[in-house]
């Protein structure tokens, strides 16, 4: 896939996320936008998956630990054929599979999240199982930076480092925001790279919105020389692409409303569908 093609897919997916959140009047849009490029590169280019066989045993696993961002995966799952496009219109409506947090009933979803701090532990379990069975599939886990306040993240980090699970790839969505403010004001997270290194992980740092850097960081994950699990710290912006929602704590879990809807569509460079 060319860079332009991927950019167009990301733009379209972000517009659909906006459609879904505006229609529902709720949803973690800003959290989704901070990881849009990461999720897209994983699903379109990096992960070994087969949308025709969602439970294919040899597939790579994806654990959305910061699961409130899972709305970002829905349009991509639809584009890949896991679910039908029209189902996106059911987002957060009564009886839908597409809730604010993804569940196992959705084809293409490997972990049901919602409670923060648990996904990385589950990913460690998956990666350990793959090692035990001498399987070559990888486990990817997207962790939020404010999620990293959860102690269980570090329990899992320690275990992965101890067992040298180099088939585990973590990506830290470092959008610098929690719900009420910036992480460094709420409770300092930095130096986050040193923390992961101290727990026995190889650490890479990228701009999470630069497709070329996301690709570069993930290019050698299959057959990496290091015996350590890999943590990619992706510097991102919450609400990236819409200026009045970027780095804006008040927009956590809130879609734009009123006149802001048009402003948001205008800034995405596409018209409301």
């Amino acid at each position: 896939m060319t860079t332009q093609q991927l950019e167009e897919k990301i733009c379209l997916a972000k517009r659909k996320v906006l459609d879904m959140c505006v229609a529902a009047g709720k949803g973690h849009l800003t959290t989704a936008y901070s990881c849009a490029e990461i999720v897209a590169v994983l699903f379109y280019e990096v992960m070994r998956i087969d949308p025709k066989v969602p439970r294919w045993e040899e597939r790579d696993r994806f654990v959305m630990s910061k699961n409130h961002g899972s709305v970002m995966t829905y349009p991509i799952l639809a584009d890949l054929g896991y679910i039908e496009e029209k189902e996106l219109g059911t987002f957060m409506r009564d009886g839908t599979r597409l809730g604010g947090h993804s569940k196992l009933c959705i084809p293409g979803v490997d972990f049901a999240g919602g409670s923060l701090g648990i996904g990385l532990g589950a990913a460690v379990g998956m990666a350990y199982a793959a090692k035990l069975d001498q399987k070559d599939w990888l486990t990817f886990c997207l962790v939020g930076d404010a999620e990293s306040y959860e102690g269980a993240i570090w329990e899992a980090a320690m275990l992965a480092g101890h067992h040298k699970l180099n088939n585990l790839v973590g990506i830290l969505d470092r959008n610098r925001l929690g719900v009420t403010g910036f992480t460094e004001d709420i409770l300092k997270i930095e130096p986050i790279d040193k923390k992961w290194e101290a727990f026995g992980w190889e650490v890479r740092e990228i701009n999470g919105h630069d497709i070329s850097q996301v690709r570069e960081a993930l290019t050698d994950v299959r057959g990496r020389e290091s015996d350590k699990p890999l943590m990619i710290i992706a510097q991102t912006t919450k609400g990236n692409g819409i200026d009045f929602m970027s780095d804006a704590p008040l927009f956590h879990g809130e879609p734009p409303r009123g006149a802001d809807v048009e402003r948001a569509y205008a800034q995405l460079g596409v018209k409301e569908s």
């Binding site: 696993r61 654990v63 490997d110 972990f111 701090g117 648990i118 996904g119 990385l120 532990g121 589950a122 990913a123 460690v124 379990g125 998956m126 990666a127 350990y128 199982a129 793959a130 035990l132 069975d133 102690g151 269980a152 329990e155 899992a156 320690m158 275990l159």
Partner: peptide
């Protein structure tokens, strides 16, 4: 290899177990 010690880390023990179960263990 069948004995996975997670240390005194009960939250992680349960989470890791969920990941193992998701792979059929």
């Amino acid at each position: 290899e069948r004995f996975l010690g997670v240390g005194i880390a009960e939250q992680n023990g349960m989470a890791v177990a969920s990941g193992l179960a998701l792979t059929g263990k």
